[in-house]
Amino acid sequence: MDCENKVATRESYGKALEKLGENNENIVVLDADLSTATKTEIFAKRFPDRFINVGIAEQNMMGIAAGLSTFGKIPYVSTFAVFAAGRAYEQIRNSIAYPKLNVKICATHAGITVGEDGATHQMLEDIGLMRGLPNMTVMSTSDDAQTRWAVEEISKINGPVYLRLCRMKTPKIYNEKETEKFEIGKGIQIGKGTDASIIATGVTVAESLKAKEILKEQGINVRVIDIHTIKPIDKDLIIKCAKETKRIITVEDHNIIGGLGTAVSDVLSEEYPVKVEKMGLPDVFGRSGKAEELMRYFKIDSTAIVNKFI
C-alpha cells in the first residue's frame, strides 16, 4: 500500500472517463454544475460535444440520461451522492432501473469523508437505496487503480450501474497489473489470516489494511476483504471467510442500516449464520470536520478496527 501518493477516487474517475471517451464514441457525460468537483471537467474539456451540463437539476439529469441511452449512448452521470441517490432516487428508480436502461450513475462525495461540508452533503444511505433497486449493479471502489478499472468495466455491462466515489484522498492499494484479474461481483481477499475477516468497501479498505498491519505486530492475523461490488455481492467469498475465520467484522463509511454490513448479514443469515460485527455510522447523520478526524470520531478508522481486538 502506497500511503505517500494518495489519490481521491473522484480524481481517478475523471481521468478514466477521458480515456474511455477516446476509445468509445458512445460515451456521453452529464453533470449538474459540479464538474470541477466530480472531475468530469476533464472529459468536458476534451470532448465538449459529448458533455452535457444540465445545471442544478439532478432529477432532469437522470431523465435525460435515460433518453440518451435509448439511442445507444452510454451516459455517465455525475453529481454528489446525496443528490444522485437521494434527490433523484425516484427518477433513478422509474426512469432508469425499472426499464433497465444503460446509464452509469457515478456519484462522488459519498460518506462522512466529504468532510467540512457536513451532514447535508454526507450521503450515508446511498448503498441501501441503490441495492434495493432491481436491475441495479452497485459498486464502491477503494483506490485509484480499482476505480479506473471499474469505470471502464461498467461500460461493458448493458444495464444501470451505481458507482460510489469519494472526495478524500486515499492510499494506492493496487497496481495496474493486479486489476487485470478483477471481476465485477468478485471480492478481493488480501491476506490469509484466520483470526478475523475485516470486510470493507471504498475508503475503509485502506483503513482495514492499516489495522491488519498493526494487529500483525500484536500477533493477531486478520484478512481484509475488499468488496468493490456490493450488488451482486460475492456470496461464496463471504461464506468461505465465515467458515475459515473466527470473526466477521464489516466496516464502511455508510449508515450501518442498509449498507455493506447489511448486505453481508443478508448472505450469512441465510447461508451460514454467524455473528456479524458492523462498524459504520450508528444510524446518525454526520457533521463537519476534516475527513480523517471524522473517521476517527465515528470510529471507522484503523484505530477503531484495532480496538475491536482489545
Binding site: 435515460a66 433518453g67 445507444g72 426512469s95
Partner: peptide, 17 residues
Amino acid sequence: GQGLSASVGMAIASKMN
C-alpha cells in the same frame, strides 16, 4: 413529470447521431 426529461435526452441523442 419524468417523460419530458427522457424526451429531451432522446432529442439530444438524435441530434448527436
